[in-house]
């Protein structure tokens, strides 16, 4: 593999990892607050549709992004009502959200655009424009640094950089602010938080809403950045890969970045090469596709370090009287 191909693969890794990163951080924040969310996939899909549809209608990608965030937050709140207010099963609620998104996006897309459940392709300002980082052109021909800065880091849509920025922000929010401390406490020991006079329900709704915003951004980047328009089921399991990355990262933001880069790299490599030879052994493309899931099972099984979720995750909080 020569250097130019490596640069290309890493460049596409960065792009492919972006929706995973948003969704992974979304799940991380929700689960840190004790609300399991297997509906990341559905929220991302609904966001992808709204972003593409509204960007097409308005001609402005950012209005589309706002709409994506809006619809994703609404779906998050449905999840919140079911799992926080009515103390329903969080996993079942997540499954419902996934199906709701899978069905309703196609029904509405067909109704609005009559193109077989997709949006028209986006062009110009309806898509996320690539941003050239400062001095990218100037540094282009510098050896090593040039290809890395110009070839890999520069020239992505704004959301790629927002995603990268979200990692330290999430870390800071969770581990350096009062809100984050409370949020984590709600996921570990809600009764203690309640005793301190803080609303467990309020904290959990807050976390679920943030999760919605991030999933909306994931979906928006998917349909306006990675591709140019919405097609049926375009999230294609990315919400579950994000879930896998979250477990792989053991619910820690910086590790999440590493995990999504790894999974993004696998996707980039699988996209570029049909069959890869490693040490004379042909690795089929399906193995590359399955690898994130296999790695997650291995981590969950505790063969390579143990993934321990927040203690109160998955159960609704019932106040003692």
């Amino acid at each position: 593999m020569d250097f130019a191909i490596l640069v290309q693969v890493l460049e596409s890794t960065l792009r492919l990892a972006t929706p995973l990163l948003f969704a992974c951080l979304a799940g991380l924040i929700s689960e840190r607050a004790g609300v399991f969310d297997i509906g990341l996939e559905g929220k991302m899909l609904a966001g992808a549709f709204m972003a593409a549809a509204i960007a097409f209608v308005s001609g402005n990608v950012w209005i589309g992004v706002a709409a994506a965030v809006g619809v994703s937050v609404v779906m998050s709140l449905i999840h919140g009502v079911a799992s926080i207010t009515f103390r329903g099963n969080q996993l079942i609620s997540g499954v419902a959200i996934n199906f709701l998104a899978a069905g309703i996006t196609v029904v509405i897309a067909q109704n609005w655009f009559r193109q077989g459940g997709r949006t028209p392709s986006l062009s110009g300002d309806m898509r996320m424009q690539r941003i050239d980082l400062p001095f990218a052109e100037a540094l282009r021909d510098v050896p090593v640094l040039g290809p890395i800065y110009h070839g890999i880091l520069s020239g992505h849509g704004l959301l790629v950089y927002v995603g990268l920025l979200c990692v330290p922000l999430t870390w800071y929010m969770l581990f350096r602010t009062r809100f984050g401390l409370r949020l984590r406490a709600v996921g570990e020991n809600p009764a203690a938080v309640d005793t301190a006079g803080i609303s467990v329900i309020g904290m959990r709704y807050g976390a679920v809403a943030i999760c919605g915003v991030l999933c909306g951004l994931a979906g928006a980047y998917l349909s306006t950045g990675l591709s140019a328009g919405f097609v049926q089921d375009m999230s294609a399991g990315r919400g579950f890969i994000a879930l896998a990355a979250m477990i792989f990262a053991k619910w820690r933001p910086w590790h999440a970045l590493g995990a999504v880069w790894l999974f993004g790299l696998l996707e980039a490599v699988a996209n570029r090469f049909q069959n890869i030879e490693i040490l004379g052994l042909a690795v089929p493309v399906q193995a590359m596709q399955a690898l994130p899931y296999i790695l997650t099972v291995v981590i969950l099984a505790g063969f390579v370090g143990k993934a321990i979720p927040p203690r109160a995750g998955g159960s609704a909080y019932v106040k003692e009287h």
Binding site: I78, F86, R87, G88, N89, Q90, I92, S93, V95, A96
Partner: peptide, 13 residues
């Protein structure tokens, strides 16, 4: 999805 939502997750509602 709605059947799952109502019979499963919103059972208490």
């Amino acid at each position: 999805a709605l059947v799952i939502l109502f019979t499963g997750a919103l059972d208490n509602m």
